[in-house]
Computed example of a mutant assay.
Amino acid sequence: ERLLRQIGALGAEDTIAVGGGGFLPHIRSDAIDRVVVALGIGSRPLRVPTETGEEARGRVFILVAAPFDAPVAYLETVATLAALLRQDGVVDAILAAGSAREIAAIDAVRNAPRVQKLSVLDVMEPAAHRVYPDMPLEEAARLMVRGRHRGLPVVNRNDEIVGMLSEKDLIRDYLPGYLRLFDSSDDPAKKLVQPSGRRTRETGDRTVKDVMSKAVLCLPTEASISEAASIIVNKNVDPLPLTREGKWVGLISRRSLIRKLLQF
């Protein structure tokens, strides 16, 4: 029952529109103890919103549900099924099948491609935008919005990571000013966005170092893809900075990891 509620709350970012009428909703849940795959076929095409804001239509839905402690199996299963559904004729063959046994007998299903082993360098997004501690906060915020970054490492002039600026940090800093417009001193949201020991300035001269998080979890480029996936999925670190010889060289995000896996 708990899993069904969680599935019902899935959003566009949790469903991959593969094309040709196939969809891959995917979820991590504490309600199960192993990776589970379920196939559903609609009696008519359903409209499904995508991350781009557009709608896709299709009848074939393959749900992937996995426990939190199986991040690699979760991502590899999603990637393998996406590669399967992308093959010409597979969705049509599934729709034409009369039973689960007939679906399992489809050649493409029996010979589903296996995801190749990756390194973190295969998935890494190279460091392109740099945020410095003394950079005006508004400039850094606009940089993150333009680049669609959920977070960026804060580095010194030697490219050594000294902090992390995330969407959460920006919300905590900007939202109190918005709430003050309504002069609601008893608004509980104010307590939520201003954690104990953290203050925001009234003026517009805030810099990145005023709001950044100083505790940063990162990995060296020699780390395995399993380590990166485990941190991203289990510790909810997204994006995850990568370093080489102590210097920031790139990021791995949940989206970039799935995007890379979907190429196989």
Rank of each mutant, 00 (worst) to 15 (best):
P136K: 09
R114D: 14
N158W: 07
M164Y: 06
N158V: 11
E139G: 06
P133R: 01
S184E: 14
A105S: 15
M164N: 04
R130C: 11
V115R: 10
L181N: 05
M144Q: 07
R150V: 10
L170G: 05
D122I: 08
A93G: 02
A93C: 03
L95S: 07
P113R: 01
V109K: 03
P126N: 10
A141E: 02
L143N: 06
P176I: 13
L143Q: 07
I103W: 03
G163E: 04
D169Q: 04
V145A: 15
I171F: 13
D134W: 04
P153Q: 08
R150Y: 10
P126G: 14
K117G: 14
L165T: 00
S166E: 11
L175H: 01
I94C: 07
R180N: 11
V162M: 03
L170F: 05
R130T: 12
P133E: 09
L175E: 05
D173N: 11
I106F: 02
R180A: 12
A127H: 09
A127R: 07
L152H: 03
A140S: 08
I171R: 05
S184D: 15
G151A: 15
A140I: 06
A97F: 07
F182V: 09
S99N: 06
D122C: 06
I161K: 00
L152R: 00
A97C: 05
L165N: 03
D159F: 14
V109C: 10
L179K: 04
A140Y: 01
E167W: 06
N156H: 06
L143G: 05
P126I: 14
D134S: 15
A112P: 00
A140L: 12
D134Q: 14
A112Y: 06
P136I: 09
R114W: 11
A105K: 08
D134H: 13
G147C: 13
R110H: 04
R157W: 11
M144D: 04
S184R: 13
V123R: 07
K168Y: 08
Y174H: 09
G177A: 13
V162D: 03
V120F: 12
Y178M: 14
L118T: 05
Y178Q: 10
P113C: 08
A104H: 10
E167S: 15
M124E: 08
L170P: 00
R150T: 14
I171Q: 08
I103H: 01
A93R: 04
A96R: 09
L95H: 00
D107Y: 02
V154C: 05
V145G: 02
L170A: 02
Y174C: 06
V91A: 08
M135Q: 05
L170N: 01
A97G: 07
L143E: 10
R180S: 12
V145D: 13
Y132I: 04
E138P: 00
L181A: 12
G177Q: 09
V109E: 08
M144R: 01
L152Q: 03
A140K: 02
L170S: 05
H149K: 12
M135L: 15
P176L: 09
H129D: 15
G177I: 02
